[in-house]
Computed example of a mutant assay.
Amino acid sequence: MALLSSSPFSSILIILCIFSSIFLTLVTAKVDGGYAQSFDPEELGMKKEKFSHFRFYWHDIVSGSNPTSVTVVHPPSNSSTFGQINMIDNPLTEGPNLTSKLIGKAQGFYGSASQEGIGLIMVMNFAFMEGKYNGSTITVLGRNMIFTKIREMAVIGGTGVLRFARGYAQASTYYANFTTRDAIVEYNCYVVHY
């Protein structure tokens, strides 16, 4: 053994052992490229997934002295609404009447994205202000052909107790006034979340 400790072979062997340890540590680590890391969802407190159904009414108020939907980009032509974009901060209520319990706000925008018919692209967060969902959001993105009885859009995310939300939202018009352009839409959201 004394012969190994004094030979160049022992130094090489020690260096190889050190490099092998470092290599094995890097290979078995959970780090992917230095900027991302894999982990067990339970480490973030995410246990079993839940399936939830949310039903509420979306009030798009364009008219009056305090609108909740305002045009921020006007269409380039007077003959069509194509290209128009509205920013929204619409009330979400439990019932169809604006005086029913306020449960949140729909914040985002919609734009007229169809040259044939009235088809909107909807980009909005349903920000809840009531109950155990207070402070949580559901993010919706999709196509809304407003003259179709039931329209379906994707739920692409969420925050708070609705983190990692995914699913779909169905919209159906409860009331529409084509003179004032005010509308009440019933939303049913089916969401899988932790």
Rank of each mutant, 00 (worst) to 15 (best):
S114H: 07
Y175S: 13
T68Q: 08
S6A: 14
S69E: 09
S100I: 00
S6R: 12
E130I: 00
K30I: 00
G119Q: 06
G33P: 05
D60P: 04
Y133F: 12
P41H: 04
I103R: 01
G167F: 12
G108Q: 03
S20N: 13
A106Q: 03
P8C: 09
F19C: 11
T71G: 03
I121K: 05
R181L: 14
T139M: 09
G83D: 12
L141T: 04
E42Y: 02
T71S: 12
D89F: 03
R166S: 14
M87E: 06
S65I: 01
F128S: 01
S38M: 03
E94C: 00
K105D: 01
Q37A: 09
P91K: 05
Y174W: 14
V72W: 08
G64D: 07
N125W: 07
H59C: 02
A29F: 10
S10D: 14
I121M: 13
I146E: 15
I184P: 09
S114K: 03
G34M: 05
S21N: 14
T159N: 10
T173K: 09
M124K: 00
I121L: 14
Y35F: 10
F164H: 10
F23R: 03
T68H: 06
V155E: 12
R55F: 02
N134I: 00
F51W: 00
L44T: 04
R143Q: 11
N90V: 00
L120H: 05
C17N: 14
I103L: 03
I14E: 15
G119A: 06
G119S: 07
A169I: 02
L102K: 02
G95S: 08
L26P: 02
V161T: 14
A165H: 08
G160S: 08
I61P: 04
L162A: 10
Y194M: 06
M145N: 14
L44V: 02
T179M: 11
A36S: 13
V70W: 07
V155P: 09
Q107G: 05
F128T: 01
T159C: 12
Y187H: 07
W58P: 00
T179W: 08
A29Y: 11
D60G: 06
T173Q: 11
T71K: 06
S5F: 15
S6N: 14
I121C: 09
G142Q: 03
I184K: 07
S100H: 06
Y168H: 15
S10M: 08
T137R: 02
A29N: 15
S52H: 04
M122C: 03
L24D: 11
A176V: 14
T148I: 07
G104K: 01
A169G: 13
V72S: 11
S5P: 02
I150A: 11
S100A: 06
A165S: 15
N134M: 01
I88A: 05
I138A: 09
F164R: 10
S114I: 00
Y168M: 04
G111L: 08
S7E: 12
L26W: 13
S11M: 09
E186H: 10
P76I: 01
H193W: 12
A36H: 05
E186Q: 15
I118N: 11
M153Y: 08
A171E: 10
